[in-house]
Nucleic acid binder design. Structure first.
Lengths: 146, 146
DNA sequence: CCATCACATTAGAATATTCGAATATGATTA
DNA sequence: TAATCATATTCGAATATTCTAATGTGATGG
């Protein structure tokens, strides 16, 4: 078993997230998380036309989110990375829950941030950030995005 | 502080993932994970035109991934959901790592799946899935995707 | 071998995203 | 108050994604 860790760029990461960012593909992953399914079953569960489901499966296959084995004339798809579904669920359940802080909370947040992250934010005497000066420009800006 | 949990659909989830699925937006999140930054600093770090960065910030704002406070004439952006960045990192580091199993492994996986998930996969005597029969069609297919 | 089932692939129209250019706005400074 | 700085917004054009319809393909059954 060969591991590949070829310097995944932001572009790669974004590609994965975009791939996951489609309701039908999420639905497929959700269904496959409960066990392998053949294409026709998936179609029926999602109530989507065959070609469309097949296309989404193709996309998921291309990124190795899913894989399949042949069972007679059926193709049974399954999640190629069992861990991903759970991680994804975490993001979507915990990460998306919208917390709407009161304006007061926002202000407290802001001053907390102002105060506590002073080491990270360069500022001048009056609590305002330095501008027009050579701030930290050297932080692997080499990595090209998009 | 008011919590909102308005029945997030697959569509909502997909929307979040698509939003996150852009290299510049990921870069912004990555930078903000280290502490608040004003727009100009972000621009310079990412080497992207102002309008573009502003547009991406607007998108992130709309989904409450980021928020900002005004500091003089600067707008300092920060991550509105600190947890999300870490969850995201988990997905991208652990979830994306491409494991390329050997063909043998794939076959073993397949037979393991065939054997062990029998309870999940309806089959007939010869180890082939039932088809054309009323399989499990009742699984909240009500939730519309897309 | 021929028909059929289960699925994949292609092609192109419809739709959505993204970007750069231009312009607008709000806070600060002169 | 005028100029300027920092940032936002708007408007198309360029590009990418997604869907539907049509067709191709491989395995199986007759």
């Amino acid at each position: 078993m060969i591991m590949e860790q070829k310097h995944l760029t932001l572009r790669d990461h974004a590609g994965l997230l975009r791939l996951l960012g489609h309701p039908v593909r999420l639905a497929i992953i959700q269904r496959l998380a409960a066990g392998p399914r053949c294409v026709t079953d998936i179609q029926e569960l999602l109530e989507k036309p065959q070609a469309n489901v097949s296309q989404h499966l193709m996309a998921l296959r291309a990124h190795r989110i899913v894989d399949h084995y042949q069972d007679g004339k059926l193709r049974c798809y399954y999640l190629a990375r069992p861990g991903l579904a759970k991680l994804l669920a975490d993001v979507l359940e915990n990460g998306y829950a919208v917390v709407r802080p009161s304006p007061e909370q926002v202000r407290r947040d802001a001053s907390r941030l102002r105060g506590e992250t002073a080491a990270e934010i360069p500022r001048n005497g009056r609590g305002r950030q330095l501008r027009g000066r050579p701030r930290r420009l050297a932080e692997l800006t080499t990595e090209q995005n998009r």
